[in-house]
Design a protein around this nucleic acid. Sequence first.
DNA 1: GCGATATATGATATGAGATAACATGACAAG
DNA 2: CTTGTCATGTTATCTCATATCATATATCGC
Lengths: 172, 172
Amino acid sequence: MTSPVSSKSDPATEALGFAAHDHDHCVETAMAAAEARCNAEGLQFTPVRRKALEILLQEHRALGAYEVLDRLRDAGFGSQPPVAYRALDFLVANGFAHKIERLNAFIACAHPGTSHSPVFMICRLCDSVAEASAGPTRGALGQAARDAGFQIERTVVEAEGICPACSEKAQA
Amino acid sequence: MTSPVSSKSDPATEALGFAAHDHDHCVETAMAAAEARCNAEGLQFTPVRRKALEILLQEHRALGAYEVLDRLRDAGFGSQPPVAYRALDFLVANGFAHKIERLNAFIACAHPGTSHSPVFMICRLCDSVAEASAGPTRGALGQAARDAGFQIERTVVEAEGICPACSEKAQA
DNA sequence: GCGATATATGATATGAGATAACATGACAAG
DNA sequence: CTTGTCATGTTATCTCATATCATATATCGC
């Protein structure tokens, strides 16, 4: 894992997945949405958890647990691994973030609120990650599972390849 | 990772994925096929690599790199992690084995020879893993990638849930 | 065959990801 | 006010993975 520290362009207009967007705005929106849903569902949106989500949203890329931990420490929280893992577990369990198995890293959910089986596209050159939403058990996997009598509870769907931006760069 | 040491029934007729089969035969067949393909393509099917594949085929479940390493050491090969990782990398790179990202573990390919994007079903109760073959970029993922202009090179598709055998046990 | 180059193996050391186990603090229910 | 639950924090340890350097074995061009 090389962590190329994603070359940033304009702090307020980076790539979300592979499309430009207003970053500050999306962070605010997502935090507000999380806030609201925690209130609605009686979840404890505690300071560490809030900060962890904020970190993931700000970076807008997949972060390792220890990267999150570093930032949590900087923010005055505990400095030991369980601190980060517990906050991340909470975020993942409640759909505010996802774990990218291929990278052993975590990323803020790009479609908060929506109940979904996420699908990820991971650029192997710039490590950017885009989240798409897919029908839960349609397609080949669902069919294979039905044929085998397997009850799917959770799916991991991750594609590795080259994102549009890196693809253009390579051609130039 | 609890490693429940998969409860075995008859050594020669265990579960491949979720279906019964003649285990000894499938090991022989797979080894012969690997042998043949390495010859055909000029790949060096060296003793460590051969042994590593044999280990995965014999166990017929997902093994961590260090479990493979233990067995390689027992067989007289080097005892340091890179020994196992290099052998496994070779097997994965050439399609003789796959890495299950969700488990950080490796499993022998169940469809050797066929060029394929594998799809896995992982039982969270007994840790058994079944491999199904799926069209490479059809379905939701392929569509999302095309929409985004993302070039897929490799896909990870893993479903976690309950296998038929454990499902029956649970009902009893 | 013979030497040059590439490929494979081996050991050392360390980096990176993850969790078990235990202690403390906040808070609500009884 | 005490008991139970949940969140936080720390220590220690475990598992997974790779960079690096040294040595050996193939393979290819001559």
